[in-house]
Design a protein around this nucleic acid. Structure first.
Lengths: 395, 395
DNA sequence: TCTGTTTATGAAATCGATTTCAGAGATGCA
DNA sequence: TGCATCTCTGAAATCGATTTCATAAACAGA
């Protein structure tokens, strides 16, 4: 192919319409034009056992074998047994591609999570897979690294794969993504949130409500000088933003100001939690309560507090969000919000299975969270306002 | 269907051959016989755009459209552009089932991990998926919950799906599983170990060597009274067994006895680590070094040590394995073995991609681990033997 | 024994994309 | 100009399982 032709194609393609260049197929075409070696299909190593082979050995027609597999009750028992024996003999398995082609069903669900590094997502995916597996579905997994553009690409790839349903995380997805889903006419559900943009059904908890509760609990203990550590840096993480809002609302309601410097906006990691707490206590040494939007940040904050000589909870109350396994084992154990990740995963699976079957399904499911009060929180040492109730706590 | 017939089939089926009952297809048949509603295929929501539609609109044959998509360089540029335009117009995507049926390639890899709850597996899967995605592959995920029987079932399901390659974890897999893989003629690689039964290629670290190093390091510090906490209860977890063996060999070499009561055999969890340490110190109060086969156990052990008033590392050295994010943030930071999980995932992906393409591939890959010396280890307070070198350590 | 019904099975069409094979048209050379 | 060669495109076969339709066999009732 001459360079001129390539140029011609390129300019035309760009000229028309920007979306054309994004078309999933074209990315592959580009790859091929650039001679990036796309893997060559290799000849099948050995003849696969086909339904016809079974049929021949059992002296029946392929149709009968198919019926034994798909509608055993309409085949005469002796014949059925004979066919089953031969199926086992040849250890025949059906070709799912052919099956999917004929039936139009892949029996496949896709999930796109921001990352698997978060235990809470890993747990949800595991529950999702287990439930799907019970119903004969298989799970495609992809991760977006909190990047909406990448989420869109992965989704495109999954849709091309012909998935029957898709599980997303969070409520903020671009219009492009919603259009893609709509056009593919694939059932979707988004998870870990209670509602999503564009009317996508959701299953999860009320993140804002949870931190509002948490903040009110701390207010109830008598705290007035708050600090917040929130991983709100990635635009697609609406969970943490909702959590931050919950804190802000609860404080606004009782007219306690929260200055920008009292909110550390950061990314997600233990080390970031450490740094955040250090900065917080440097800027506002009189802080008595730190609300974190994830346990990881809270655990980092606790580690740093210890290092800085600030006793938790006597001098400083710290709270988390997620209730990871470690939270209960910290010293002191961490007060946090428990998120029913496994239930979310199972619920998402059930939703999609029903939606695919055409069974009526609820639009969205709101699951309860639990405020788990442990010993990382206590009344402030000397409340400015009289503490409503003095609780004694261990450690 | 009459109950008699059902009975007949059952007894016959059981009578023949136990393996027959395990055949994947038969599980589905059972489900259907029991009238468990298997999801009914629903009619396609809307007529999907087919290659023929594009061909008609562009006034070419389906063959040409296919060529534009698969071998663009052999189509005349003007024609190619026209076809591409119509493809974009109709936002046509090919039916992957039909494609897979014709080409015999699904462009799909399957992975079966014991669980995703372990960060180290989640990390590996994430790296695996990312690398595969770059090459146009999609990843099926399944988990075995450390159950070999379940691993076999999931594998069967994946093979029926027509996967082009399979990633496993660990080196101990039943003969049935190996037979299944062999028969399906699917490239396979197992991960996190350096070698596997049945000649399955592996990519990972030398688990035994790692704990041997760790133990020798502790011996070098002057420790002689050891305790071991090992999650060796699940039969499929050969990693932890190898780790336990590494400890035993290192001690045997210097003729330090390790009584059965000095080895706590347990499951995998933080709480189990706590309990194990308590029991260890109850039975052997003079223990100075505890080697754990995972960080989670070690972290649990550290928490319990603190609670029991045993100062780490002054009174008790504790070591882990995996180097999870938290390990470095503990107080004191945990001495452990760093496992290159992401590298393992990437390596597995590369291996399979090459194997599928027919490129020669190495049989196995041994990756280096790192012994990360932190402050949870120190010379024993009063060495029986003279400590070779006194190190001062923080905290 | 014969007709009408039910039941069980086989032949053949079908799903959608890919690819072989053959032929139409363009081009090169004598 | 005529023949050979090359390039490009279309018709049709193909992948493997499912399912409709038709038919053979079995059976009931008269």
């Amino acid at each position: 192919m001459s360079p001129v032709r390539t140029l011609g194609l390129r300019s035309v393609a760009i000229g028309w319409f920007i979306e054309i260049r994004d078309h999933a197929l074209f990315r592959l075409i580009d790859a091929q034009m650039n001679k990036k070696p796309i893997i060559e299909p290799k000849a099948r190593q050995q003849a696969r056992v086909k339904i016809e082979d079974v049929a021949r050995k059992a002296n029946v027609s392929p149709a009968t074998v198919s019926r034994v597999l798909n509608h055993p009750e309409i085949v005469r028992p002796e014949l059925r047994d004979k066919v089953m024996r031969h199926i086992a003999d040849l250890s025949y398995t059906r070709d799912s591609a052919a099956r999917a082609l004929k039936s139009g069903r892949m029996r496949t669900i896709g999930v796109i999570v921001p990352t698997l590094a978060l235990g809470i997502f890993a747990e949800g995916v595991e529950a999702l897979q287990n439930r799907l597996s019970e119903s004969g579905y298989t799970l495609f997994i992809a991760n977006s690294q909190y990047d909406q553009r990448r989420e869109l690409q992965e989704l495109q790839s999954l849709i091309e794969r012909g998935i029957d349903g898709i599980v997303l995380v969070g409520g903020s997805h671009g219009r492009e993504l919603r259009a893609l889903i709509e056009q593919a006419a694939v059932p979707v559900i988004t998870t870990y949130v209670s509602k999503a943009a564009g009317g996508i059904p959701a299953i999860g908890i009320d993140n804002e409500g949870a931190t509002r509760d948490m903040t009110e609990y701390l207010l109830g203990l008598g705290h007035v000088r708050f600090g917040v550590i929130a991983n709100v840096n990635s635009p697609s993480n609406d969970r943490s933003r909702a959590r931050l809002e919950g804190i802000q609302r609860a404080l606004a309601k009782v007219e306690i100001p929260l200055k920008p410097t009292q909110i550390i906006r950061t990314d997600y990691s233990l080390v970031q939690g450490r740094n955040a707490l250090r900065q917080l206590l440097t800027d506002h040494p009189d802080t008595t309560a730190v609300v974190c939007t994830t346990d990881t940040l809270a655990i980092g904050a606790m580690a740093e507090a210890r290092k800085m000589g600030s006793i938790v909870p006597a001098a400083l109350s710290i709270t988390g969000f997620d209730d990871v396994e470690l939270a209960a084992q910290m010293d002191p154990p961490l007060t946090t919000i428990s998120v029913p990740a496994a239930e979310i995963g199972r619920g998402a699976a059930d939703y999609l299975i029903n939606a695919i079957a055409g069974t009526p399904v609820p639009r969205s499911v709101l699951l309860p969270y639990r405020l788990v009060m442990r010993s990382s929180t206590a009344p402030p040492r000397s409340g400015e306002r009289p503490a409503r109730r003095q609780r004694t706590r261990g450690q």
